[in-house]
Amino acid sequence: MPKKLSIGNTVITRIGFAGIRVGYNGRSICIDPASEVENCSIILYTHSHSRHYTNSPVSSEKRVYSPFTGIIVKPGDVLEVEGIRITVREAYNDPSIHGDSVPHPRGFSVGYILSPPEGPSIYYVGDSDLVPELIQVESSIDVLIPPIGGGAVMNPEDAFELVKSIKPVVTIPVHTEDPRLLYKFRDMVQPYTQVVLLWK
């Protein structure tokens, strides 16, 4: 039932298949909104798969950041957007799990950490396996938004490992439409974080 979660100075809502909108200081930063871009002032895409990005024109008033369109970013970049520090993170599939032909090869996809001043740090993991770079975070994470759907992204067990490693205050699972995976993940991680099943 929760459709809008306020934490610190931010308001988080779900958009698209796996995306989020973060309201902060009168602005809206959207990550992977797919086609739901109308209420976004800044758009961050993690990669170009259709459930995350649609190749339709976006108003020039909206600033777009991604590894493939708009202002191009890559893992390790640190941006300053509307007073928010945005750290670009690695997100990729591990060939040792999937073989050479992976849906999200290294360099194709990224993740983001949003760090508003005095606000919570929000880590949108992006489409990734549980690769070593994910757990190497420099400062504490308040809100973790991991994919849990399995297949081309982490499954509930992988996401559980990530939660246990970085100990976020709140975790909002995304990237699945299977409630069984949501419950499985929720029941595993709840002692280590506060899970919120945020609905659209």
């Binding site: 039932m1 929760p2 459709k3 809008k4 979660l5 306020s6 934490i7 205050v169 709140v170 506060q194 919120v196 945020l198 609905w199």
Partner: peptide, 11 residues
């Protein structure tokens, strides 16, 4: 964790 009838939630 607070929630109201409209589904607005706050932590």
């Amino acid at each position: 964790i607070w929630e109201n009838e409209e589904g607005e939630s706050r932590i």
